[in-house]
Amino acid sequence: MTGQAPAGHFRMRPRRTPRAILLRLRALLAGGLVLGVGATMTLAAWNDSEFSTGTFSASSFALQSSTDSGGAWQEHGTSATAATMSFDATGMSPGSLNYASIWVRTTSGSLSGTLALQGGQLVQGGNAGLFAAFDYRVVRYTSGSCDASQFGEAASYIVGTSSSKVALGTAGSSTAVAASAGTPVRFCFEITMKTTADNSLQGTNSGAVWEIKGTSDS
């Protein structure tokens, strides 16, 4: 039959050239690479996560003061709303003394802290010459009245000492204040008109405002 090999003969396979072998090898390698990628992509790992959350709140620090032996506590946070200490300071003369107290404590729930008495400032409209004619000192006391008896050698001086007084603009030392409306800090102020006050200051008026700056402990 046409196209068939004669009986007893075998069909010879085409001889593969080196180029054909190379192409086939590349095809096999390519197939192996594809299989390798496919095998890698089928690998898997189990995953799980845990989450946690927390809430945070800020502490507070606030002060209030009283000028009537702790009877009425209010916040006096600016010079415009300053508590008025009860000096009986009308008609002061050279060498005369005057006393007044202010008590300071933290509010309920407040942290503890420290109090630092800042130097007195001349009130608006006051006579600067008369302001300069006064000296003062301040003690922290725990009992009794705010008067001359509080200014002994063993007193806890915030401003001045048992033997010295300073100008109204002088700042004082710091002192601790208890937390959460605890025991108040009692300040006793002693104001003295200098014996050297000029005669021209007769009939004039002045005033001072002090800041008691509080800082929380934490």
Rank of each mutant, 00 (worst) to 15 (best):
S49A: 15
A44G: 12
P94S: 04
F131R: 14
A45S: 15
Q150W: 04
F56N: 11
G126E: 05
T55F: 04
L97K: 08
N98H: 10
Y99P: 06
F134V: 09
A128N: 09
T42S: 13
G77M: 07
S143E: 10
N47C: 04
G71P: 02
Q118S: 12
S79N: 13
Q124I: 06
N98L: 02
A44M: 11
Q74R: 12
V139D: 02
A100Q: 11
T107D: 14
S69E: 15
A72W: 12
A148Q: 12
G38F: 01
A39P: 00
T42V: 15
T55L: 09
S112Y: 02
A82F: 05
T142I: 05
A148V: 08
V104L: 13
S108G: 02
S52I: 09
D88H: 12
D135M: 03
F51G: 08
F61C: 00
Q64K: 14
F134S: 12
S49M: 04
L130R: 10
A72L: 14
I158W: 01
S149G: 00
T55A: 11
G126V: 11
W73M: 10
Y157P: 02
F56V: 10
Q124A: 15
D88A: 15
Q74P: 00
G109D: 01
A155L: 09
E75Q: 15
L115I: 11
A82S: 15
D68S: 14
T55I: 13
T67G: 13
A155M: 04
R137F: 06
Q124D: 14
W73L: 08
F56E: 08
I102D: 07
G144M: 05
A133M: 07
L63F: 02
A82Y: 09
Q121Y: 03
A133E: 10
L130V: 06
L130W: 06
L115V: 03
G144H: 09
V123Q: 14
S57E: 15
